[in-house]
């Protein structure tokens, strides 16, 4: 008789009986929100969002002023730049730091010197004939600007040079080269 009374009170509101706690779904809201249907809805939404995320880049490319206009800038007299040395300059604008290297073999190599990883300045390592970004140890090939080691994934923008009357000029810039 006593057991029967206890049983009948088990499902009453506010009961301390353990069974009530077992059947009460404390995570009901999560069960409603995090289910198979909600997962697919979120996945479809993510797919659409990822696709739409490419639009700002295209729009900016269409309306932005990205044309590298013919821009001839004198850098340095060749006689003042011995083999195995480098000099910094800005090209094509004052906000684009660049590096001109006179290699040990006598070639002139120029690149924008902002590392393609996180824009740290890149330096010429004379001993190993490489370009080094000291921030995260990114190495670039001196002859073509391609990344050799470290985090950078893209090559340094190449600056084409000309020597006229003993003066080195920067004449053009190419982002993708080789």
């Amino acid at each position: 008789m006593k057991d029967n009374n206890r049983k009948s009170k088990r499902n009453q509101t506010g009961s301390n009986d353990e069974l009530v706690n077992l059947v009460n779904n404390v995570n009901r809201k999560e069960d409603l929100d995090l289910n198979r249907r909600a997962f697919l809805k979120a996945t479809a939404g993510a797919s659409v969002a990822l696709g739409l995320a490419t639009i700002p880049f295209s729009v900016h490319a269409m309306i932005g002023d990205f044309e590298d206009k013919e821009n001839r800038v004198g850098i340095v007299k060749l006689s003042e730049l011995p083999k195995g040395s480098s000099i910094t300059f800005n090209y094509p604008t004052d906000h684009d730091p660049a590096l001109l290297v006179h290699t040990k073999s006598g070639e002139l190599k120029a690149y924008n010197s902002a590392c393609t990883h996180l824009m740290c300045p890149v330096f010429y390592e004379k001993e190993e004939e490489v370009l080094l970004c000291p921030c995260h140890k990114g190495y670039f090939e001196l002859n073509n600007g391609q990344p050799l080691a470290g985090p950078p994934q893209r090559e340094l923008p190449l600056i084409e040079t000309e020597v006229t009357n003993g003066i080195v000029y920067a004449v053009d810039r190419r982002y993708r080269h080789g």
Partner: peptide, 11 residues
Amino acid sequence: SIVALLSSFIA
């Protein structure tokens, strides 16, 4: 961008 938009439309 065009491929991404088409893909989004298909999704």
